[in-house]
Design a protein around this nucleic acid. Structure first.
Lengths: 260, 260
DNA sequence: TTGTTGCAGATTGTTGACAATCTACAAACC
DNA sequence: GGTTTGTAGATTGTCAACAATCTGCAACAA
C-alpha cells in the first residue's frame, strides 16, 4: 500500500479551520455530519475512483488506520459501507479488496446504463431550462476542442462532466444516484483498460451535439434514443479495446490480489 | 423497540447444525461467508422489509446488540451497510433510524422504477425461454384467482413475485439488483400507506396478462411500453390513496421518530 | 409563569486488548 | 525430491472500556 503513504486525511480539527470561510455554522454543521467513519469512507472512495488504489488491491485495515491516524473501528465501518456501495469486496478472515469488475459484469452495467441514459435523455428533454441547454452546448464545444487537440487528459473529465450534468438535468435524485453508482462501478472496470493504452478515444463528438439539440428541441423520444445508442457504443468500443490486448498479459497487474 | 423482543437471531453454531442437511461443506461454506456483522445486517433487513420495524423507528445499537447477543461493534458495522443500502439513516450522536421515504422521493423511485421496468420488459421479451413464459402465465393465473377472491394477503406476494421473476428473466444481474433496491425502498414508503387500509387493490389483472403475451410474442417494444405504463399506474394509485387520508393524521405513527 | 442553567443518565463514537484465523516458511517424514 | 506437519507472525473479528454527546428533568432566577 505504498500509494497510501503520500496522502494524509485531514483531522476533524483541520476541517474546522478550513471550513471557516462561510462562518461558524458551517463548521458546526460539518462536525454534526461527519464521523471518522464517514471521513475514512470518503477518502478511500476518492482514492479508488482516482485510481490511486487499483481493482484487486488489498486494503489492510491496520495500515489504513495507521495512515489516517484513526483506530481500526471506523476503518472497518467504512469498509462495510464501501462494500455495500459496490466498490470493495470482503473475504472473511482474509481482508477487503478493491472490487474487480469482470467483462460479464461490465456488460451488464453498460446495458443498464444505456437504459438509464435513455430515461435521462427523455426527462432532460422535458425538464431542462434554456439556460441549462446552453450550458450543455458549452460543454460540447469544450469537448470538441479537446478532441481536435487530441488532448486525452482534458477530454475524459469533460465527457464525465457532460454526462453527469445531463443526469442532473433529468431532475430525479434517485436516478442521479443510481447513475453515479454505475459510473463508479465502471471505473473499476475502465481503470484496467485505461492502463492498457488510449484506444478508446472517440473519432468524433458529433453524437454529443445531436443529443443536446434533441433536448433543445424538447424531443424526448429522440434524446432518449440517442443517449441509449451512445451508451451502447461506449460498450462496443471497450470490447474492441479488450480484444486487441487479450493476447498479452497486462504487466501492470502484478500486485497482490485475491485468488480468482 | 418492543417488536425486537420476540425474535432471536440464531448464533453461528445454530446455523451450523441447521445447515447440515446438505453436508459439512455447506456448513463450512456458511461460516466462511458469514460474520456476525453480516448476520445482524440480514436480520435487521428482514425485519425492516417485513414491517416489524417501521420507518422512522430508532434502532438502539445497545438494545440490538443485547437482543442478538453480540457486541456493539458488529451492530455498528451492520448499520453502516444498511445505511449505504438506503434502508436506514444515521444522525451522528443521535442514532440510527429506519429511513422514511417521502412522497417526493417515492415519486422519483416510481419514475426510475418505470424506466427499469421498461428495460426489463424489453430484455425479457428477447431472452425469456418458452418454459419461463409459461411460468409467468401460471403466476398471472394465480393472481387472477386471488383478485377474484379479493384475497389481499395472497395477491400482494404474488404480485411481488411476478415482477421479481420478470426482472430475473431480463438476464442482467446488475439490473436485477438495482430493481430490488428500488423495491426495498418502496417498502419504506408503502408500509406507511398500507397501514392506512387496502385502497390500492387492483381492479383487474389484465395488464399482467398483456405483458406476458407481449413477451411471448417477442415484442420487446410493446412489452417495455406495457411495463412502463403499469409502473406509472402503480404510482398514480398510491397518490390517490394518500390524498384520501391526508385529512386525518395516522394514529399508528406516534412512535419515537427523529425530528423532521 | 416562563426562561435558563446544571446535572444525571442514556447513548453514541472511538480505542485498545484479546481471541480466532490465515499465511508463509522451516523442519520432519516418506 | 515431494509431501506433510508445526509454528511464528500478521491480520481479521469481536469485545469491553473510556470519552464525548445528547436528552430529559429539576432547580433557580426573572
Amino acid at each position: 500500500m505504498s500509494s497510501m503513504a503520500t496522502v494524509i486525511l485531514p483531522s476533524p480539527h483541520d476541517n474546522m479551520t478550513t471550513a471557516a470561510p462561510t462562518g461558524p455554522s458551517s463548521a458546526i454543521d460539518l462536525l454534526r455530519r461527519h464521523s471518522l467513519t464517514s471521513l475514512v469512507q470518503q477518502e478511500l472512495e476518492r482514492r479508488i475512483l482516482a485510481g490511486d488504489i487499483l481493482p484487486g488491491d488489498k486494503l489492510n485495515e491496520a495500515d489504513v488506520a495507521a495512515e489516517l491516524n484513526v483506530s481500526r473501528g471506523p476503518v472497518r465501518e467504512a469498509f462495510r459501507a464501501l462494500e455495500q456501495a459496490g466498490l470493495v469486496r470482503t473475504e472473511k478472515n482474509r481482508g477487503v479488496f478493491v472490487r474487480q469488475v469482470s467483462l460479464e459484469e461490465a456488460d451488464e452495467i453498460y446495458e443498464l446504463r444505456a437504459g438509464l441514459d435513455e430515461l435521462i435523455g427523455r426527462l432532460a428533454a422535458e425538464r431542462a431550462s434554456d439556460g441549462q441547454v446552453a450550458e450543455l452546448r458549452a460543454l460540447v464545444v469544450q469537448m470538441q476542442e479537446a478532441a481536435s487537440a487530441k488532448d486525452v487528459d482534458a477530454y475524459y473529465p469533460l465527457n464525465i462532466r457532460f454526462h453527469d450534468r445531463l443526469a442532473q438535468l433529468a431532475g430525479n435524485g434517485t436516478l442521479l444516484a443510481a447513475y453515479r453508482r454505475l459510473i463508479n462501478e465502471l471505473h473499476l472496470y475502465r481503470r484496467r483498460t485505461l492502463a492498457l493504452g488510449h484506444d478508446a478515444f472517440p473519432k468524433s463528438t458529433r453524437q454529443h451535439a445531436d443529443i443536446v439539440e434533441a433536448i433543445a428541441a424538447r424531443d424526448a423520444t429522440l434524446a432518449g434514443e440517442l443517449l441509449y445508442q451512445h451508451a451502447m457504443k461506449s460498450r462496443s468500443r471497450l470490447h474492441e479495446a479488450l480484444e486487441q490486448v487479450d493476447l498479452q498479459p497486462p504487466p501492470a497487474l502484478v500486485r497482490e490480489t485475491s485468488k480468482p
